[in-house]
């Protein structure tokens, strides 16, 4: 009997040990931030009409057809009347741009099109039109799975992103992973800590009353741990974005998500 109990206990311990290992592994199925929000916000996000982020999606749809720049071209002139034709493309950023030798996220892809094809001035990061276009593309890819390119030249970018994710910083000396991996589901003030997934971005933040890009969210996290935030569009933020895409592979895109 004792032997039985002992072996039983041993099995339990082993199970615990293996699940412990499994949890430390980044191949466990990712969980969307939607699972961690209050019911009211979840309802607001899932209501296609009332979701305030849809205002930016609508604006993005207008901008898609609006000609701009010296070439007097609109996005639609090259890419078709409806963005959904290219919807899959939005799910797969950041990608490596071989011609430029650097990773390019959706925001910089839009601006490259503007400067090179449309011969228009680039849109400022976090400006209303850039947020609107980004939200429009990501919304067109809604329900598709997040995909990440981590082959070839992107391998190094994703690896750098992981370093950024694990790098302690700021007066609080915390890395992203200390909240978003080691303390997921616990309470931080009145909120539950999510996995820090990027599938809902750009996201409408009720407390800021506006749509925010992923990089602005990074800045807010940096500020919250008393670290100096990097510039929007910084290489390390793009790398972190690539790592998060890799980490969230398989999650459905939910843009525009609604968060507190």
């Amino acid at each position: 009997m004792i032997l039985f109990r002992l072996s039983h206990g041993l099995v339990a311990a082993l199970v615990l040990l293996t699940t412990g290992v499994a949890q430390g592994d980044d191949r466990r199925p990712p969980r969307s931030g939607l699972e961690f929000v209050a019911p009211g916000l979840r309802q607001l996000q899932e209501d296609e009409f009332a979701n305030p982020g849809m205002l930016w999606v609508m604006r993005g749809n207008q901008l898609w057809r609006e000609p701009a720049g010296a070439a007097n071209k609109s996005c639609a002139d090259c890419h078709g009347k409806e963005a959904p034709e290219n919807a899959g493309a939005a799910a797969g950023y950041p990608r490596f741009d071989a011609a430029r030798g650097r990773p390019v996220n959706l925001e910089s892809r839009i601006n490259l099109c503007r400067t090179e094809e449309m011969r228009a001035p680039p849109l400022a990061y976090e400006s209303e039109p850039l947020l609107a276009l980004t939200a429009y593309f990501r919304h067109a890819a809604r329900s598709q799975s997040m995909v990440a390119d981590d082959s070839g030249a992107m391998t190094a970018v994703v690896a750098r992103g992981r370093q950024v994710f694990e790098q302690r910083r700021g007066a609080f000396d915390l890395a992203c992973r200390h909240c978003h991996e080691l303390n997921v589901g616990k309470s931080l003030r009145e909120e539950r800590i999510s996995e820090g997934q990027s599938n809902g971005f750009p996201t409408y933040r009720v407390s800021w009353q506006t749509l925010v890009s992923l990089h602005r969210r990074f800045q807010a996290c940096d500020t919250a741990v008393s670290a100096e935030p990097l510039a929007l569009g910084h290489d390390d933020y793009v790398a972190l974005e690539a790592y998060l895409a890799r980490r969230g592979t398989g999650l459905a895109i939910e843009t525009p998500a609604v968060r507190r």
Partner: peptide, 9 residues
């Protein structure tokens, strides 16, 4: 009837 308008308020 449902309405939503973009405004900073």
């Amino acid at each position: 009837i449902r309405t939503l308008i973009q405004h900073p308020m």
